[in-house]
Design a protein around this nucleic acid. Structure first.
Lengths: 231, 231, 231, 231
DNA sequence: GATGAATGAGCCTTCATTCAT
DNA sequence: GATGAATGAAGGCTCATTCAT
């Protein structure tokens, strides 16, 4: 089985500002365009460290190297910063995975492997995994955001996996199970590993390497999916 | 396979007040003894709804039917309320599961089933599952509490499952794997289902019944653990 | 010059409870009679340590060995405790000095000496000298008390000294000066030494013994009062 | 004896803001520079009226014409306001007296006279004399401040007087005494007069003019210091 | 656009006072 | 009389937000 690690998968900066190559922006112009992304970048780091409530606008501003008032030129409130942060960072990721999987052609087993690899890379990015935890923690105070996250991020992720599973079941590679349920079970250890890392990393004595966990997960899971021997 | 659902397992009230039958407490006295539990009860509900930071002491007090100052007769700060809440509610649960599992004698497969059943009951209690999520969300601000939770709750739970798995591997019921890693993989869907419920329940259109998920998890997992046929 | 140190002058407890020898009080009865004095005693110590504002009724109660509510059986408010404390402790002192001086018969010089000795004993009692400082600090918030203190304590003290001085001037022992002004000048170092002790004692490296100060004060002052030589 | 009243001695405003003539500050900027001084000014008046504990930050703010929060832009706490107030106002005064006395050349008697005159001017400023009383009253709660005041204000003042006295003793102008002790005795009536004024002024029927007191003090004191006639 | 001084609503916490027992 | 649980007004402090420069 070839493990096509999508090498360039998640190595761009968190908040991408797509500068069109047509224009030649003056420094001033570029600065202005980059501002929102810089602010979200600073916001993410601060939210990660302190949580949403304990983060002060001044902290974000200081980290972004601007003054407090500047944030309000781009975002009308602290809540809006948070929402923009989550919206801007997660959908592009999931869309790339979608695109990758749409073109992938191998057997379902290999494609599940790719999913795990892709996910492992996301989970390896401490800044990125902080977002789900923030959403989790603040879902009660941001119902819109929770809905957005549920549908645009989790929903898409599960759909991808369910699609792979369905393909494998139809081709006889896997035994027949409910693909939706199975997709959740497939994702669970990965999501939890990511949350775990974010939450207990600073206090863990002997952290379990995520690769070990995910490799064994795939092993167990694929065996569990194996069709019954035709006795 | 007999599913011994531990029927009386988690049906007591969250914070139990053990009134000694020896004394004949005046109403005043009885009230005082019950206060801490009433306050924690109110605090849990409020934290659940709003999260730690957004909860005002006055909210807790109002829900408990007392005035703001009364809380400070029993807990020195909002942080202390939170810590007491987590400490008081989680350890007793896990200890009961420990005790149950220590005496259980059946095959490892059945004992895993019991674990899932026990856990499903905990997860069915919406108030109870709010606690792990709160810990998750606030771990950064409460390192001591995170450590406590990691060791006294998660550590114990994993140890129980790892023990069952190790027993099954030694008896040849399961194939040989790292029990620690496998224990994490066994717990992952359950924990995530609990967090899920807490986070997305209010916005979910067609929630997946936890029983469905857990039943299939056990099915997949046990197949994955099955020893290689000695072809 | 004989220094009649009034040995028994200030050695009683601060708040005297005058038990009539006629009755034979039951312990209960005695306790009840003693309560106000005990409370004031405790209040004085606590005010001394923390000042009026920073003293909590509970501190006073704890030191007196009673519960918070008990204080309110005897004094209607914290202010009332303070006022009672000042009123109860200062007038008896000054009255004794008054009585002593009324019967003293020696030359004015010796009587001034007695005043200083008497005052030195008061100033040696750290608990007692705390009262003037408290009055000073709180005078703005207790105008009635300030007036009381000014007239009943300071006024009487000055009158005694002025009387001695006037006697000395009339007898030719001292030269003629305004007795009121001179009385103030005579008292100033003593009062200041007392305040000093209360304020800077905990931070002073090499405190000046009050006796040294007062001895030299008397020396300087008496020379200053000496009549002009009838050249 | 020429009484060189240092006419310009203490007639500046309490908190001076030195605006550099080089810059052309915007109104906004000028305001910001002036703020700390304005706040301390308002704080002094409020502390004078109510004492430290009974003064609310809002009182200070209102008197300074700003909002509560503004104070915290300049001082981190109420304690810090108090400390800044004392530190900013007393040291400059004492330094000026030091400078004046360092250059004074007359006989010791005349220099003592100058000290009294200088002190009388300070004592005539009701706002200024409130500070020692505040320090006295709050010393227990501000040990650092008490130490500062003891060393930087009182210590310097006593050193100046002791130096004058020592000079007079060496030149034979005064008889030989311990200069440290004598300095305290020289200062006592002045300090007490200042405290007196602050404390009992509002309730005094017939206040004694400080000049009367100080003139007679000097008279008595200088006679007391006079060398023995060589019989 | 950017700044940062200023605002003021809001919250945690304290504690004098009350009153049922 | 004595208790101490309960109250709730008050105040120190924070910080999201505004706006004059």
């Amino acid at each position: 089985m070839r493990l096509t690690a999508p090498a360039l998968f998640f190595n761009d900066c968190l908040v991408s500002h797509k500068e069109s190559p047509m224009e030649a922006p003056t420094p001033r112009r570029r600065r202005k365009d980059a501002r929102p992304a810089e602010l979200l970048d600073a916001a993410l780091d601060t939210f990660r460290e302190k949580g949403f409530a304990a983060t002060r606008m001044e902290d974000i501003a200081a980290r972004a190297g601007v003054s407090k008032g500047t944030i309000y030129l781009y975002y009308p409130s602290k809540e809006a910063v948070f929402e923009a942060l989550v919206r801007a960072n997660l959908v592009p990721r999931i869309e790339r995975i979608q695109a990758l999987m749409a073109t992938a052609q191998g057997p379902a087993t290999e494609r599940l492997h790719m999913m795990i690899t892709a996910f492992a890379q996301v989970a390896a990015d401490a800044r990125l995994v902080a977002l789900p935890k923030l959403v989790l923690a603040e879902a009660g105070n941001f119902p819109d955001l929770a809905r957005f996250y549920r549908h645009e991020v989790i929903g898409r992720g599960l759909a991808i996996v369910a699609g792979i599973l369905r393909g494998g079941m139809e081709s006889g590679e896997f035994r027949a199970l409910d693909p939706e349920v199975t997709a959740r079970l497939f994702m669970a250890p990965m999501i939890l590993a990511a949350l775990w890392r974010t939450t207990f990393a600073p206090i863990e004595d002997a952290p379990l390497p995520p690769e070990t966990l995910l490799r064994q997960h795939l092993d167990l899971f694929l065996r569990g999916l194996r069709p019954e021997p035709a006795s």
